[in-house]
């Protein structure tokens, strides 16, 4: 007799625990406001119907390394190579040339600042150690391409030059 009571009360307790769990899931099932899903890729740039939930990355998000240029197509990179030394993976390669400046002195300038996105591990050492703050992170995160040669990027734009006042 005792075992039968235990058996039935066991069933009752089991069912009760399941119902408690289902009360939580049921609450969310009937309240669409609690849905936190963001529709990707429809809403990633704030198009679509529910543009309120657009996907905006934070300012510090480490998307990829970029070299900002100003309106005159000038950047701050002097070609010192500190980012290249600090990079743990050999992601950055700087090809520099020496140019004769206006005052007649020879000066080092970058020809190409090569950044291999496929090798980057986003440790942010290049951005942090750059003495002239020439590099920063962009918030771009959709890096998928069909050809891996596209992952090798040249950060300085063609025809760009060093910003005045940056040594």
């Amino acid at each position: 007799m005792k075992s039968i009571i235990e058996y039935i009360s066991g069933i009752y307790r089991g069912l009760r625990s399941l119902l408690i769990g289902m009360s939580v899931t049921g609450k969310y099932f009937f309240s669409p406001r609690a849905i936190v899903t963001q529709q990707y890729p429809e809403n990633r740039h704030g198009h679509g119907k529910r543009s309120k939930k657009q996907l905006v990355m934070f300012d510090r998000f480490k998307g990829e390394v970029v070299m900002p240029h100003d309106a005159n197509n000038q950047h701050k990179c002097t070609g010192c190579g500190i980012c290249e030394i600090n990079c743990p993976n050999g992601t950055i390669e700087i090809i520099s040339v020496s140019k004769v400046g206006e005052d007649g002195k020879k000066k080092r300038a970058i020809e190409k600042h090569i950044y291999r996105l496929g090798m980057c591990s986003f440790c942010a050492l290049c951005v942090k150690t750059c003495p002239s703050k020439a590099l920063e992170f962009s918030q771009e995160f959709e890096h998928a391409v069909f050809d891996r040669t596209k992952l090798v990027k040249v950060l300085n734009k063609p025809g760009s030059s060093l910003m005045k006042g940056v040594e």
Binding site: F58, R60, K62, F122
Partner: peptide
């Protein structure tokens, strides 16, 4: 992860 992303810049691998 949002807190991490805002302060550290990474979501999983913080560095």
């Amino acid at each position: 992860l949002d807190i991490f992303e805002e302060t550290c810049g990474g979501r999983l691998l913080l560095s």
